[in-house]
Simulated scan of single mutants.
Amino acid sequence: MRRRRGMGSVFSLSAIDLFASGMGAFIIITIILMPDYQKEVRMEGHLAYLDALARESETLLDETEMGVERLQMALDAARTRQLELEAEERILGSEINTLNAQLTARRQQPTPAVLDEELEDTANAHAVTFRFLGLKTEQTRYVLLVDMNKFLGEHSELVLRSVGRALDALQPGFEVGIIGFQQLDDGPRFHHWPTEGALAPVTAANRARALRWLGDRSGAFAGGSPMLAAFEAAYRTPAGAVILFSDGLPNPAFNRGLPARPLAQAITVANPGNVEVHAVTIGDYFKYQGTVAFMETLARANSGGFLALAQ
């Protein structure tokens, strides 16, 4: 019985010694690995901080881009409004000039009529290079913009004669193109001579070709007048002057919902800035209120002249 107790004491001390050795080894290993653990913990904290900074930076960048886009939109809107105000100023100026001219005419005594030929003889030949029924300009490149809506169909011969007189007034060395325009069921349709966006030298042969080309389309007058789209097409040519032949009755439905005065303003805003617009009103313009005012306002606001022709 005593031997068994002695053996139990030895085993118990050996176990304690083993456990103590293991604990000591664990403590030593822990002390050795503690700095690496702390570095890893700090590294995870740094990474989390960097992630947070990255998210904040992305948020700020998104907000900045949105702010820049909003500023750009505001700037574009301001520029558009500036162009609209400039066009409105030019329109108001043209109306004031018209009223002043009417007032002056009433105050003055009537004078005998002077023919265009007499005026041309007394005018400075170097200041005016083109004269058509009183329309005068120094430009040498022209687009004849011909309205082909259905209401002008009964005046197609007058349109053809008027365009022919304009072509005859062009001098050799000038350039000319014709754009016929109309609004059909499938949308705006344009007829180009010689080709889209191009002008042809003024020669006797080209005058005949252009007039024959337009005469072949005398039976194609139909639909409405997409006036704004027609001027945008004319502005894309190299012409320095546009001569519009129309009855002055553009339907707002075919012109982005714009009535006459806002339409004249939109055409003026779309003008690149140096293209003259001359307006020739054709047909029964005296039957409709505002047609003459629209054509005259459009011409004066774009440094052009205005005249009206009836059958």
Rank of each mutant, 00 (worst) to 15 (best):
R3T: 11
R3C: 06
R5K: 06
G8H: 10
L18N: 15
A20C: 03
S21W: 09
S21T: 08
A25C: 14
F26D: 08
I27H: 06
I29G: 09
T30L: 09
I31W: 14
M34N: 06
E40G: 07
E40K: 07
V41I: 14
L47H: 11
E56T: 08
V68D: 00
E69L: 14
D76F: 05
R79M: 14
E86L: 00
E89S: 13
E89N: 03
G93F: 00
N97A: 15
A105M: 12
R107N: 13
Q109D: 12
P112I: 05
P112A: 11
N124Q: 05
V128S: 10
F130K: 03
R131S: 12
F132V: 08
L135C: 01
T137I: 03
T137W: 00
M148Y: 01
E157Y: 10
R161G: 05
V163H: 09
G164S: 07
A169G: 08
L170V: 10
Q171H: 03
G173R: 06
F174V: 00
G187L: 02
P188K: 00
W193Y: 10
E196P: 03
L199R: 09
R207F: 02
A208L: 13
L214H: 01
G215M: 08
R217N: 05
G223P: 04
G224Y: 01
P226M: 04
F231K: 04
A233I: 08
A233S: 11
P238G: 06
P238H: 05
A241T: 12
F245E: 02
P250R: 11
A253H: 13
G257P: 06
L258D: 10
A264C: 07
T268V: 02
N271Y: 05
G273T: 14
V275C: 01
E276C: 02
T281A: 15
I282K: 14
I282W: 14
G283S: 04
G283F: 04
D284M: 04
D284N: 15
K287M: 11
T291E: 08
F294H: 13
T297V: 12
N302D: 09
G304F: 02
G304L: 06
G305R: 14
A310P: 01
